[in-house]
Design a binder for these strands. Sequence first.
DNA 1: ACCCAGGCCATCT
DNA 2: AGATGGCCTGGG
Length: 266
Amino acid sequence: MHLIRADNFNLHQIANSGQCFRMLCIREGVYSVVSCGKYLELYQIGDLIFLGCSEDEYENFWSDYFDMKTDYSKIAVNTDDEFLNRAIEFGNGIRILQQDLFELIISFIISQRKNITSIKLAIDLLCRRFGEKFKGIGINANEVDAYAFPTAEALVNAPYDELAECGLGYRTRYIKAAAEWFLEWEKNKRDLSYNILVSEILGVGAKVANCICLFGLHQLEFCPIDVWVKRIFDEEYGGGIPSWATSEYAGVYQQYCFYYKRNQKG
DNA sequence: ACCCAGGCCATCT
DNA sequence: AGATGGCCTGGG
């Protein structure tokens, strides 16, 4: 067990911000998350975060995963934009996680035309079938069965029908192609960019590429425009593009606004 | 029973 | 370059 104090950190908001599909509420207030073959359970009381891992593992891994080195109090500042101010106030515990790139690419290809519940289900099935099973340590030092996200090799070698059975539908061939692309990319690790993602990976269009840049490459200026953000532009800005959407931290503001819009009035 | 979801691609005008 | 239809499937 490791304890930290954190500002601009809200576990519930992070888990429900739509950027991560493997952070689950397993009991009242307690969340589990798997990343890079590591399992963590954690909960929050006020600004205290209780983590079911060693200080060493926190410092070496989870601290970066939760982007603790970025000072969000410098991003979530008051502006002259009333809607943005309300969104920041509402969602200012959201952080941009530093997730595994391959997992990110596959997850957001899966996300197209699916709601969050369906995305989580498909990814869970994928991990159970093709991911490595391992023992995680729970918040009470108990042992937990966990599944890593499948490697690119595992998905390249996976029979098409078995992949499809995870509820991927027409995206199945995209997933296979993306896994093959990733293995090839890993050989030389040339710099990734929005244009490369869109032009080289089948099934990656503008929205998904923006998500990969923001959530997978931690380039905070990328602003994915989905139906919710479109709705914000239409209903709050008369169809125009607000200045935050083209700013240095556009992706963070997008998260605040997206979360606010989805969760307001009911 | 619908209807559509946090898109993308191919195929048109 | 802009608009339209098809696509898998499960949740609401």
